[in-house]
Amino acid sequence: MSGSVEKVSSGTTKTPADFLKSIRGKDVVVKLNSGVDYRGILTCLDGYMNIAMEQTEEYVNGQLKNKYGDAFIRGNNVLYISTVNRTLGDGA
């Protein structure tokens, strides 16, 4: 981490592998190609983007439709994995 100065400070790269390492155990949103969102805690994932999540909430058109204690999502359906944005008054 320290003292690696080969990249310009503004443009530090973060590869998909780096991203995946950084989000384990974090709150994430997984969006599927169908438009359905899953919010929960990322347990782990693999090279196919198969995902295991805990405390998963399923949102269809922004509306909570279902809750799962654990959930496995098949990677081919995944559009993106997002960190949870803490923008709108989320942190009290």
Binding site: T15, G35, M49, Y80, S82, T83, V84, N85, T87
Partner: peptide, 27 residues
Amino acid sequence: MVLEDVTEYEITAEGRRVTKLDQILLN
């Protein structure tokens, strides 16, 4: 791709929906 400060545009029956995201891994 890893993207930061993302704006997502979805074309739906109700019109265009815009979502802001901090950081994503896009398939």
